[in-house]
């Protein structure tokens, strides 16, 4: 990265991130090892698709731990939803994944992140096509973008390339199937370990063919790519995008560490 990026569309800067008390008001099981938690956050100023919150737990003795989680759904009043994947260790995730019950409270800081965000550009003559590339639970902020597109009625060409180990690990499977059949969203699942019997693509990690530009996309403006996943996944995907003609001005990436996925 040696050049200054173009101005981000949307509300860069935005409301000042600060800490808010949050109460758990919704729980939804996504897979055997992941669930979505919806919090009621009084005073929440709203957020953009792709932003995240810091979640803080404080024990009775004053010890506190915090972690960052992507928001999984567009702004909806004072509600903030995150999807948590069981990881086996850590201080915060096991509580969010298993221990926390409806009515329980914690603190969230946000909205954070004015860079890895997408907003509809309905005023543009041709909306910019968007390629979303998610590895494992890296799909979470991308799902917020997919849902924001549907919520806003945007017609921007959207394609989600979603890499998962096995069919059982697919987050938001039913909703993605619904949106891809009714809303013009293209969803391609890449299975890295186990594929369903009828899958055309052999199992394996992401390849250049998986990211080829769909034939129906406009020649201009050039598509923008959002990549989110474990560090190794992102580092694998970015060179493929550069080979396809994407640049450091049209790629936005978010890595979440060596594990996960």
């Amino acid at each position: 990265m040696t050049e200054a990026p173009a101005r981000t569309r949307g509300k860069v800067g935005g409301p000042r991130p600060r800490w808010f008390p949050a109460r758990l008001v919704g729980l939804r099981s996504e897979t055997a090892t992941a669930r979505t938690l919806t919090f009621q956050v009084p005073g929440w100023p709203g957020h953009l698709a792709g932003q995240h919150v810091d979640v803080r737990l404080t024990a009775a003795d004053g010890y506190s731990a915090q972690r960052a989680y992507s928001i999984s759904a567009p702004a909806d009043g004072e509600q903030v939803s995150i999807t948590v994947q069981e990881v086996g260790d850590g201080e915060v995730s096991p509580y969010l994944e298993e221990g926390m019950e409806l009515g329980d409270q914690l603190e969230v800081r946000g909205p954070i992140g004015g860079w890895f965000v997408w907003s509809p550009s309905s005023e543009a003559p041709v909306e910019q096509p968007v390629l979303l590339i998610g590895g494992g639970s890296g799909v979470v902020p991308l799902m917020a973008m997919v849902r924001e597109r549907a919520r806003s009625g945007s017609r921007a060409p959207f394609r989600l390339v979603y890499s998962v180990r096995s069919p059982e690990q697919v987050l938001y499977a039913a909703e993605l199937a619904e949106l891809s059949s009714t809303d013009g969203l293209v969803v391609d699942l890449l299975h890295t370990r186990t594929a369903p019997p009828d899958a055309a693509r052999p199992v394996g990690r992401i390849t250049p063919e998986d990211l080829a530009t769909p034939p129906g996309w406009p020649a201009s403006p050039p598509p923008r790519a959002y990549v989110c996943g474990p560090t190794a996944f992102v580092e694998l995907a970015i060179p493929l995008l550069l080979d396809l003609g994407y640049t450091n001005k049209t790629i936005r990436a978010e890595r979440f560490g060596p594990s996960g996925g």
């Binding site: 995240h52 972690r67 960052a68 260790d89």
Partner: peptide, 28 residues
């Protein structure tokens, strides 16, 4: 940005992961 954030200090994350603490100081 989904969990887990590695806190061992051995592995780099994106600056996004540090945006929360810096937002407090820069007031945005």
């Amino acid at each position: 940005m989904n969990s887990p954030i590695d806190t061992s200090g051995e592995s780099a994350l994106d600056g996004s992961a540090a945006a929360g603490p810096f937002a407090d100081v820069f007031a945005g």
